[in-house]
Design a protein around this nucleic acid. Structure first.
Lengths: 284, 284
DNA sequence: GCCACTGGCTGCAAATTTGCAGGCAGATGG
DNA sequence: CCATCTGCCTGCAAATTTGCAGCCAGTGGC
């Protein structure tokens, strides 16, 4: 019986749980909350009257019936992709969007992938408002903002985008009195500063800046210690004369979007691209 | 771009609007409200960035792009049907359900189709609580109830099921003082009684009953007048010695379901069958 | 012309779905 | 052993979707 209570869209959940092996993995892939994954999977199981997954080795394994269902679902996904191409053949994607974020994120994460993205969408224009200061998002000074701290509620949409690891970098062979690089006092609450404080290093800081590329350069001298986000640490971690220690705490990255742009196709395309940039931030 | 904002289930709306030619038709077919049809169609149009239908001759005509999309949708519907068969191959549909309704509906609409239905579902048992009195649905005396009047809200689910026409039947060649068949005073508010009152016939009633088959038999004598629902009028309307006049007002038919059965597969199967019975109530 | 019917849309309330916070269980590492 | 991390689930609130009532426009019949 496939009555109207069989929600076609729930079928996508089955495929995502199979592909990722966990509800949490499917949640990240589908960009919905994992409780929603669980509930929608339960809903489609009830509708089909079939058990779809067994729990084995901490993973979700599809039942034989589920394997058969998955073959049909992948056929459906092919059809959906073709439908999407029909929509894509309408070349009306245009717009100019202002993205506010830090210098580091703009330079290291977005910029490397911006040219190909704009080539793919000739009607789009992106303005990167990158600085150390928070752009006044509530005053419409930006359309999209990427924040390293969960923002207070406002008349805009907030969504969690990603997170980043932090690394404490120091010379591999300890040297006397390395230069301590620290962040300014107004950033005392960020995990980077907190870590340095617990190490008793914050007061010894001889280089105080919020410019992470400055810190990066100092660390490259092998005479300094400091804390940097993961996207700026690939070369440092590969350097044998440096030691990198992952901090226990991560920093969450949040996305803000003006509410009136929630159904804007250009905005959605740009947001997808931003998410993709963060997904691949560890790859050059 | 077919991101997660393309709701697979919305694709079904496109097909239904194409098939039925109007939102209202799609609404009846899908059994959702027509405003929901309009909104979901608008949503999928936004997601695809494609105009799907033009309005022509009071009907919705698919655009060329929509025609291409519809081909993929019908492929998907085939896959969904196959998925449903996988679920159906699990022969665990069992249960015993009590349906409360009038004698007329039980005998004329449900009973003719009950045997084939039960043969199709060997694990099901149906108890028809048919009488003229309203079973105490709120006291769990029935699982499903079919009512000819919109019920007050209660701790159960109410849904509109169908409606029926009413016919005033009289001898084609007028005779003096035909026997007036009327309904009892406690049913004074139903459209049947109201109509007879406006015709000044209610006080002249010489046969007062709530048994519509009794009225049917009297009308067959060609010496009586009365009002009956459409499902009991096929033969009367075909009788050349009788004249049938459709009443302006219809009677709505409502379905009640105990809330705890809303996700019960057996209950859903039975409800689908009941709907089908009413859909074909004019066919023998 | 008037009336009834049908289809589609708007606004509001009700119903449903989703996200978040917190808790629990299991696995891993120090 | 304890702390941390990860995955999953529950309860509650927020967000979204849906249904209903009412309205408007168009059509057909009297």
């Amino acid at each position: 019986m496939t009555g109207p209570d069989l929600n076609w869209d729930d079928l996508r959940i089955i495929a995502a749980v199979k592909d990722e092996g966990t509800f949490a993995g499917a949640s990240a892939h589908l960009r919905i909350d994992e409780t929603t994954v669980a509930r929608r999977l339960a809903r489609i199981q009830r509708a089909l009257g079939v058990r779809l997954f067994e729990a084995a080795d901490g993973l979700r394994k599809p039942t034989p019936q589920c394997e058969r269902i998955l073959r049909h679902i992948s056929d459906m996904a092919l059809q959906v992709a073709k439908i999407g191409q029909i929509g894509d053949s309408v070349p009306d994607l245009a717009g100019r969007l202002r993205i506010a974020c830090t210098n580091g994120i703009a330079e290291q994460i977005l910029a490397p992938r911006l040219a190909p993205f704009l080539a793919q969408h000739p009607g789009l224009a992106i303005q990167l408002l990158s600085s150390s200061e928070n752009v006044q998002f509530s005053r419409w000074q930006a359309d999209i903002a990427i924040r390293l701290r969960k923002p207070d509620k406002g008349d805009f949409t907030i969504a969690r985008l990603s997170d980043m690891r932090l690394y404490f970098i120091e010379p591999a062979t300890g040297i006397d009195t390395p230069v301590v690089c620290a962040y300014p006092p107004e950033l005392d609450q960020i995990p980077e500063s907190q870590f340095l404080k617990t190490r008793g290093l914050q007061q010894q800081a001889r280089c105080v800046t919020d410019n992470i590329r400055v810190i990066h350069t100092l660390l490259l001298s092998h005479r300094a210690v400091g804390v940097l986000p993961d996207y700026l640490c690939a070369d440092l971690r590969a350097d044998k004369r440096l030691k990198a220690t992952s901090l226990p705490r991560r920093r969450e990255i949040w996305l803000l979007l003006q509410n009136h742009l929630r159904q804007d196709r250009a905005a959605r395309v740009v947001i997808d691209w931003v998410r993709e940039c963060f997904q691949h931030k560890d790859q050059p």
